[in-house]
Design a protein around this nucleic acid. Structure first.
Length: 481
RNA sequence: GGCGCUAUCGUCUAAGGGUUAGGACAGGGCCCUCUCAAGGCUCAGAUCGGGGUUCGAAUCCCCGUAGCGCUACCA
């Protein structure tokens, strides 16, 4: 059975690039009947924080793509230390006693050659190395890249295909720090082995680290997982997406808080570097699972478009569009609880919604969603449908101020009091006949009614609005015009 | 500096030796219409540059250029 892992380090919030990596892993696992392992790579105690961890877990949970197992790397340190010791004993690694702040070797002719190792350390005899270690001298453990034999490292990447690197281009990287803690390279490979990871799917920034990992796997005598490296996400300026440079737009929780639907967000991210190749764009999670293939993943980086100075395009316009698509096409009963959360947050939730009025709420959501983009729009633009107090917009006020509008609406209210069935049809009939009697355009009353009923000049069909607001409130609002 | 990776409309992408280089978002226009959306139709918009190979190249090869990544006792 396939086992994939997503291994964030809790040194910042969940980044959308990280979310995409998680999504691709999850999609791959689901589509092949495999399992998803969440591994918190918290080996760097200094940079890890509780807050980051919470943000990552929250962001991941919001995606609604559940993981199957969770592990913390910090709890596995003993295993990492043992692996480092084993590699040392085998001679696959050596102690480097060079002080941490030692100046790097300078070039002679102004051209800096690639650093491979610190002078003298690789050649230290076992006896001397042991003696200096026993005497308490500090050291890091470095991998002894086998440059004297063979020519290099080879591996096959499921996305970037055949990869080869000469030993002469791989430096003796550290496996353990002076304090004994494992480095990322060691901890990651040891855990991938121990957790039985079959497929390592991660960002392309790890492509050149993979040679090192292959070396460790081999030195440990373990079988290699399959590797797949994803192209990176870039900001509109073409540089790698980062918190420092691009701000909160790279945080997953921003999208959650601004009213994105998880399914739409997943849909958007899955289309960055991958496509189903049949021109389909709006895809549910289930459809993504059945369509996803790693060998269809692109190798070129993708730009995430956004404009932080624009209220309209604060996120990628395509992401916004996808959200609107999901908003209108998802089953309304799945949308309801999300809207409920929004209006509760505004304090607009009243017991009448719990009691028999849920049908009206459903009707309201259904009528409004085709003109909304985000779930937060229900709170931002739907107040009159939920509350008796609401604002009158300038354009709506202008519609009411038109000659004959107010009197017409008051009269309409009186007539509606008398109709037997309060429906779109009966309201329309009453309004049109009144308009005809008075010799005014129906539009005067129609647009006036929308203004009186919702405070807005835009919205669903005015006749629909009457039934959405409900007879009782319609009569009040018309009378008070 | 060294070592890699990448390059199709503004953006996301399809075509992987033969297509008028397709679709989506964003933009323009039209239709629909009680408003706003939605929806339908439509216009504009791309193969980084230069050399090869080939009857034929966006596609294969080479050289440039640009971007990105790695080059830590970060991950």
């Amino acid at each position: 059975m396939n086992r994939v892992r997503f291994a964030p380090s809790p040194t910042g919030f969940l980044h959308i690039g990280g979310a995409r990596t998680y999504i691709f892993n999850w999609l791959f696992a689901r589509s092949t009947g495999g399992r998803t392992v969440l591994r918190i790579d918290d080996t760097d105690a200094e940079r890890s924080s509780e807050e980051s961890l919470r943000s990552i877990l929250e962001g991941l949970a919001w995606l609604e793509l559940p993981w199957d197992e969770r592990h913390y790397q910090s709890g596995r340190k003993r295993m990492h230390r043992e692996a480092a010791a084993a590699l040392l004993a085998k001679g696959a690694a050596y102690r480097d006693f060079t002080p941490q702040d030692a100046a790097p070797q300078e070039s002679s002719a102004g051209t800096r050659a690639a650093w491979l190792c610190n002078p003298g350390m690789r050649e230290l005899s076992k006896e001397e190395s042991d003696r200096r270690a026993a005497s308490g001298e500090r050291f890091v453990v470095r991998f002894r890249v086998p440059r004297e034999r063979g020519n290099g490292v080879f591996f096959k990447d499921s996305i970037f295909k055949k990869q080869f690197r000469k030993f002469a281009d791989i430096e003796d990287f550290a496996l353990a720090r002076a304090n004994g803690d494992p480095t990322y390279h060691l901890a990651s490979t040891v855990d991938d082995c121990d957790l039985g990871i079959t497929h390592v799917i991660r960002g392309q920034d790890h492509l050149s680290n993979t040679y090192k990992h292959v070396l460790i796997f081999e030195a440990l005598g373990r079988e290699l997982p399959r590797f797949g490296h994803l192209p990176l996400l870039l900001g509109p300026d073409g540089s790698k997406l980062s918190k420092r440079k691009h701000g909160p737009i790279v945080s997953v929780t921003t999208y959650r808080d601004k009213g994105f639907l998880p399914s739409a967000f997943v849909n958007y991210l899955s289309l960055l570097g991958w496509s189903p190749k049949d021109n389909r764009e709006v895809l549910s999670v289930d459809e993504l699972v059945s369509l996803f293939k790693t060998d269809g993943v692109l190798r070129a980086n993708a730009v995430v478009q956004f404009d932080e100075s624009s209220a309209q395009n604060w996120a990628d316009p395509k992401a916004l569009w996808l959200n609107a698509q999901h908003l209108r096409s998802m089953p309304v009963e799945q949308l309801l609880p999300r809207v409920e959360t929004e209006i509760k947050r505004c304090g607009w939730w009243t017991p009448e919604y719990e009691a028999g009025r849920r049908d009206r709420l459903t009707a309201v959501v259904d009528a409004l969603r085709s003109r909304f983009t985000l779930t937060t729009d229900f709170a931002l633009r739907g107040k009159a449908y939920f509350m008796d107090a609401f604002d009158l917009e300038a354009k709506a006020a202008a519609n009411l101020d038109k000659q004959g509008a107010r009197e017409g609406l008051r009269e309409l209210g009186k007539r509606l009091e008398a109709v037997d069935d309060f429906s779109e049809q009966s309201v329309e009939a009453a309004l049109r006949s009144l308009a005809a009697e008075r010799g005014v355009k129906p539009g005067l009353l129609i647009n006036g009614a929308r203004a009186a009923l919702t405070g807005q000049s835009v919205g669903p069909s005015a006749f629909k609005v009457f039934t959405l607001i409900g007879r009782e409130r319609v009569l009040e609002r018309l009378a008070g015009v």
